[in-house]
Structure formats: structure tokens, C-alpha cells
Nucleic acid binder design. Sequence first.
DNA 1: TGCTTCACCTAGATAATCTAGGCAAACCCA
DNA 2: TGGGTTTGCCTAGATTATCTAGGTGAAGCA
Lengths: 110, 110
Amino acid sequence: MKQKTDLLQGTLDMLILRALVTGPMHGFAIMSRIHQTSESALQVEQGSLYPALYRMEAQGWIHAEWGLSENNRRAKYYALTEAGRRQLGVESENWNRMCRAINLVMDFPL
Amino acid sequence: MKQKTDLLQGTLDMLILRALVTGPMHGFAIMSRIHQTSESALQVEQGSLYPALYRMEAQGWIHAEWGLSENNRRAKYYALTEAGRRQLGVESENWNRMCRAINLVMDFPL
DNA sequence: TGCTTCACCTAGATAATCTAGGCAAACCCA
DNA sequence: TGGGTTTGCCTAGATTATCTAGGTGAAGCA
């Protein structure tokens, strides 16, 4: 049985980029942010998050820097780059297009 | 580079089930139907469609029967079962929940 | 001292979809 | 009659994203 918290594939990068628009955050905070703003409907697993952050840093969409968290623990802060901001635009548009297309099919008159 | 026609993973079964609500159809027709009703935004590949149809028949969501197409060619007609109709409800609800959740994150105030 | 929470990391499994082929019959046209 | 195009079905293997299930270490608290 699938978990209801499974993400739609292809949306994780977009969600992370979107979370970072408000400013640099560390991985753990990104996780909680997505969980909270989605009203607990979305739960990103750590095993998905960290590889994604790596991928995205390699792509140049985000930039990492070690720092200290609010709780005085070492944490890696990720910040959106210019390329990341552009990528967010692309993915966001793509998402809207897909959403619309699927809803066209779903709402097609019987 | 990803094709813009790539489907969001997890939505294919739902789209097929939805297409069949209007009545039994063969695979080829399901493909065109989805393409048309989505205004060409969605393009299901045959290599995705047929395995999906098999999966879904094994699950008991659809029932297949050989027949003749409008063009007088042999074609396998798929019909929605009762279980398939229920499944469509489940997946449709799930899709709406996910959509809403993602949009909550995307539209979160800065 | 020991438990819990925060925070990061990774290997391997899982599963959905796509790529890229192939087959056969019907129709059309020369 | 023969060849090309369209219709329609099928499959093996690659790709890729995400999850599962483990792990580490340091901070804070009792």
C-alpha cells in the first residue's frame, strides 16, 4: 500500500527551490517548512531530501555553506542562486501546465 | 533534456481509468483520447500505455475483450470494472489532495 | 551517565515511465 | 499485385526519482 505522503515525482526539486525563496535554510528546516506549509499533507523523507540537495547543488541551483542552526548545532545552509531562481520559474510553469492538462482530462464532460 | 510531454508519475492509471468512464475503448483510442482532451499537452507513449493496461487488468480495475475497431481491425477493448470505478475515486481524491498541497507550498506568502 | 532531538549522510530497493525496437493485418493507390 | 501507410498490439531494457532503512555525531536535559 502506498503511503499517502508519497510525493508526486518531479515536484521535489520545485518544492525545495520554492522553500528557499524566503531565504537560506538548512536541510532539516526545508523538510519541516514543506511539511508545515502543505498542512502536513507532504512529508519529504530525509533519504529523498539530501540526495536532492546534492543534485541541485551540482546543477548550480543552490549554494551550500556550513553554519550554526538556531539550536546551536552545525548545519548546512542552502541558498538559491540566480540559476536556481530561473529553474524555479521553469519548473513552476511546467507544473501549472501539467496540472491544467490533467484536470482537463479529469473534468472532461461524460 | 526532458520532454515537455512527460507525464507526472502516478497519474497514468488515473487518466486511463478516467478515459474509460465514457465506455469501453481500445488502447490506441485511449491514447488519442488523452492526447485530445488534454489539448495535446499530454502524450502517453505506447511503451507506457500497454504495460499499464496489463497492470490494471491484473488488479481487476479493467476488463479486456478482443473485438473489432471502427476501422475493422482487431483491437482489445478495455472496460471499467466496479473496482476500477472505485479506484478512480481513490486516485482522483488523492490527486486533488496532492495538487492542493503542492499549491499551498507554491503559493505560500513570501 | 543516558535519552531524546537535531542534523546530516548513504547504499540499495522499488517502481513508474520512456526508449526503441518489433509484429501483423487492413486499407489505399499505382 | 505489390508497396507504403496507418492502425493496433507487444516487450525488453534503460532511466530516474523517490523511499527504506540503516548509520554518524553533537547538543541539551534529567
